[in-house]
Structures are given as structure tokens and as C-alpha cells.
Amino acid sequence: MNQIKIQNLSKDYFDVKALKKININITEGSLFGILGPNGAGKTTLLRTLATLISPDEGTIKINNIDVIKEPRKIRELIGYVAQEIALDKILTGRELLDFQADLYHIDQSNKLERIELLINQLDMQNWIDRKCGTYSGGMKRRIDLAAGLLHLPKVLILDEPTVGLDIESRNIIWGLLNDLKKDGMTIILSSHYLDEIDKLADTVVIINDGKIIDQGNPTQLKNKFGGDRIILKVREFSDSLESEKVKKILEKIDGISQIVINASQGYSLNFIADRDKDLITKLKVELAFSKFKIFSLSQSQPSLDDVYLQATGKTLQDAELYMTGKRDLKKESKQSMR
């Protein structure tokens, strides 16, 4: 059953269109992944879901309750763990959880029990009574996640929960998310890591520049290509002209499809090849015939990145790198300050 219905959602920040008519349905009890590079609009989408910003257009309903019209009811249903972790440096982790429990009106008897349980689940015993100001990134994430889970939300919203985390913290968080899913909690998780989404998500939407590129089950999305991902270079650093020529040759070969030139990786050619053992030989012959050598050729199973690459002509990683340093995060956080 669709528990969350997002329709025609749009949001602008002055001249930046952060979300452009987004439509998403999320099934109850599923783990829903939102994959996209920095600046794609993930945080804006999740903040809107969490009642922190109101959209310019569109509607969101959770359990048939309108997020914009009845925010307070929604707040009871959801747990929101923001991308930027904001803890009170002076409080200990336990004091923070206690504080949070009171904000969610958990009664005194349940409170201690819930806090103890989460301390165990997230393996925080050793440092929970230290001040939050002394925590590492991984500890902060874990305490923040615990805070979001105290009131046993029906829907848990996580904005890039494992970015930059140590492996231990990441594994603990992934483990807990899997357990929560088994208990029937709906989890929405954004990430720019393919593996994370691939491993955890039942359904994924890939977004770029405020728009949905594709959505579905990760395996289905990958199988759509029906072949292997090949990355071909005729020289270490080729150029646009040369790659276009190679592309023309490839286009004529049966069983090769979806050819994309990746400018940021030395104009390499990325395409999907049918699983046919003669195909590569055929390819080599054709290239030799036109006097092209093969500098490198790699073959792999398609990944979600290919879905992204196909739509944008860039890999997720390149898109991520491209954005790094482009955004004035200070200014943005000033502007989104409430």
C-alpha cells in the first residue's frame, strides 16, 4: 500500500529550481532510496517531507494526512535525521536523548527503557555519558539516529546518514536499518553512494537537478540494460572529435547500445553490450579496420551509476566532484535558517 504520496512537488530558492514537479509513491514498510549527486535536491525533498519547508507547489500525504495542512500530526509520525547534525555540545548523549524524549512526550516509564534499548542497539554504552562536543562524526550520527528513533516513528527519514563515516559506525547503522525494516518501519534514505542504495533499498529514485531520472527496484533498473557495461578508450586522453568517430563505428555494430561519451574521463566511450562472446571480437575487428587501437577496455555488470550516466552523460562521482566547492553552503544555511 502506498503510505506516502508525493505529487507535483516543486520548490524554488530564488532563481534555483531545487525540485521540479516531483512525483513519488512510497510503499509502507519499504526502504526507499533517493540517489543523486550533491545539489540534486535530496535535502530539499526530505526537509519538505519533514515539515521544515513548505513547497511552492504540489502535495505530500503520509497515511493520508496532508503534510502542509496538518504538520503537527505528521511530526508525530515521522523521525527525521538531518544531513547536518546539530547536537548540543554541552549536553551528554544521554541528556540529549532524554531531552528529545520529552519533546516527543514519551512518558517517564517508557523513556528510560527506550533510551537503554537504543544505546544497546547502536552500541553507544562506552560514550553515551560523555558530552556531545567530544563525539566523532560516527558517534554524532549514531546519537542523532537514536534521537530520531526514540518515539518509534512510522516513517524514518534519513538524509545521507553514512557520508564520511567510519566503517564501524556505518555497519552498525546499516544493521539497525535492516532490523527496523523487518519490524515494518518505512525508511526513506538519501545518498550519493551507489552501494548503500544498492544494498539497502527496495525501491530507488534517481534524481538529478530537481528531476526524477528513473525509479524502480534497483535490480530491475540495472537489468533494463540487458547487457554488460563496457568502458572503452582508444587513447589515454582522447578528444571529442575522435570519440565521435569511434561512436559512429560502434553504432553500426549489432548488440551495442546506449553509447555515451564521458568527457570528464578522457572522452571514454561507455556503452552496453549484449552478453555475446563474439561481440568483443567483432568490435576489435571493426576498430582495427578504421585504424583505431584499443588503449583500454573494461567490462562490468551494469550498476545504478549507469542509469545515471545514461541520463546525464556523467557518472555520479563526476557530478559529485563537479559540485564540490560550487555551493556556498554557508549562504544556503543562512537562507534556510528558521
Binding site: 519533514a50 515539515t51 521544515l52 503537527r72 500530526k73 511530526r75 508525530e76 515521522i78 527525521y80 538531518a82 547536518e84 546539530a86 547536537l87 548540543d88 528529545q100 519533546l103 516527543y104 512526550h105 534521537a147 544555511s333 535558517m337 528558521r338
Partner: peptide, 16 residues
């Protein structure tokens, strides 16, 4: 609290 985003913690909570 506004500047450090802690206020958001209060704003997403279902305060009476």
C-alpha cells in the same frame, strides 16, 4: 540554536 540548526530539532518535534 537557529544558527547551528538545533532549532530544527524543536521544529520537527510534535510540540503541543
Amino acid at each position: 540554536d537557529r544558527e547551528f540548526g538545533f532549532l530544527n530539532r524543536l521544529l520537527v518535534a510534535p510540540l503541543a
